[in-house]
């Protein structure tokens, strides 16, 4: 039978905010692979690393202008345009997990608030979805030991989004930098300490070369998700089934990313501990308490903005309604782990 002449695929340009060697570039590739496969080759995504077309922090402007059709990033990277941006990932922690907060986006009214912020309030031509619910992010990397709030005072510390406001109110001086610039900034002395996100990404850019103390557990970014951005025209010009593939591909990639993160993050944490000479500890309780207090002190000032206030209220309500179920219902997994693998949980 004569071959059916295949139509040339539609090509979308998608840039990430990550450097090519970061594990998150693979996570973005997981999404791309799923979309291409589901579309039967009708849709192709040209995936580019940060800086290929525009800088990491410029992707929101670039997608809005149509310089890029799509971007793979996090919302905290454009919170200079509106602080409420940070609520879609790097927001106050009310006790709900990352998965629960992804639920807020899809079931608790978050998506509509996101649309209102980007399209109505800021007038941007973008469509956004949240994906992969990240594991809570470590407090990060320090040159020496830190035991108390007093120890971290005056540090130049790297984080992003509202976490920056949080640590500033705790007496740190905060700088926001894209992931690829963290280690050079440590070497230059622009910053003294930093967090990025997870053992694999941190290892990939060489955190262990510039600091040896890694603190797990923190409330500064306990429930972040990837942000998938699409230029409105690039998206709406597609057939409805392709739009659906782009949209639900985000959900599919969340499972793929979670599975891969499980395997890789844990292996890389082991590597950091055993091979790279990194001392891994849990963040001291005093600092964790101070973080929660800092969140509640920070909010009233930010809530002077009407949208910010509505958005936080919606998150707070969602957390109150759902998180108790997860918390009350979950068995103590540590107990079982300790039973079968005794002694491994000690830090």
């Amino acid at each position: 039978a004569p071959a059916v002449l295949a139509q040339a695929p539609i090509v979308l340009k998608m840039q990430t905010s990550w450097s090519a060697s970061n594990i998150w570039q693979e996570f973005a590739q997981d999404y791309v692979n799923r979309v291409e496969e589901m579309s039967g080759g009708r849709l192709k995504i040209d995936l580019l690393p940060a800086g290929a077309v525009v800088a990491a922090f410029q992707v929101m402007d670039a997608v809005n202008d149509g310089i890029l059709d799509a971007a793979h990033s996090v919302s905290a990277y454009w919170y200079g345009k509106n602080k409420a941006a940070s609520l879609f990932g790097t927001g106050p922690v009310f006790g709900a997990s990352s998965t629960a907060m992804l639920g807020w986006f899809y079931e608790g009214g978050g998506a509509e608030l996101y649309r209102e912020l980007t399209q109505d309030i800021m007038g941007l031509d973008v469509i956004g979805f949240l994906g992969f619910p990240m594991f809570a992010q470590p407090f990060g990397w320090f040159k020496g030991e830190v035991n108390s709030v007093a120890d971290i005072e005056g540090f130049k510390y790297r984080t992003v989004g509202l976490a920056a406001d949080l640590f500033q109110s705790m007496g740190m001086s905060v700088a926001q930098l894209p992931g690829g610039e963290i280690v050079p900034a440590m070497e230059r002395g622009v910053i003294d300490a930093f967090e990025f996100n997870n053992p694999s990404s941190d290892k990939d850019f060489g955190a262990q070369d510039v600091a040896k103390n890694y603190y797990l557990s923190s409330y500064h970014q306990a429930a972040e998700q990837f942000e998938f951005l699409f230029n409105r025209f690039s998206f709406e010009d597609l057939d409805p089934d392709l739009q659906a593939i782009l949209k639900y591909g985000v959900e599919a990639s969340a499972t793929a990313n979670t599975s891969k993160a499980m395997r890789r993050y844990s292996a890389d944490l082991q590597w950091l501990q055993n091979e790279a000479g990194v001392t891994v500890r849990r963040t001291p309780k005093e600092i964790l308490d101070a973080q929660i207090n800092a969140w509640s002190e920070l909010l009233p000032g930010l809530e002077e903005d009407d949208f910010f206030k509505r958005c936080v209220a919606s998150q707070r309500e969602w957390a109150e309604q759902v998180a108790f179920y997860e918390l009350m219902n979950a068995p103590d997994y540590a107990l079982a782990y300790e039973h079968f693998f005794p002694g491994k949980l000690k830090l």
Binding site: V54, Q58, D65, I67
Partner: peptide, 11 residues
């Protein structure tokens, strides 16, 4: 959109 890209890179 090249004009926007140019401005973006300038910035």
């Amino acid at each position: 959109r090249i004009f926007d890209l140019f401005v973006n890179q300038t910035f």
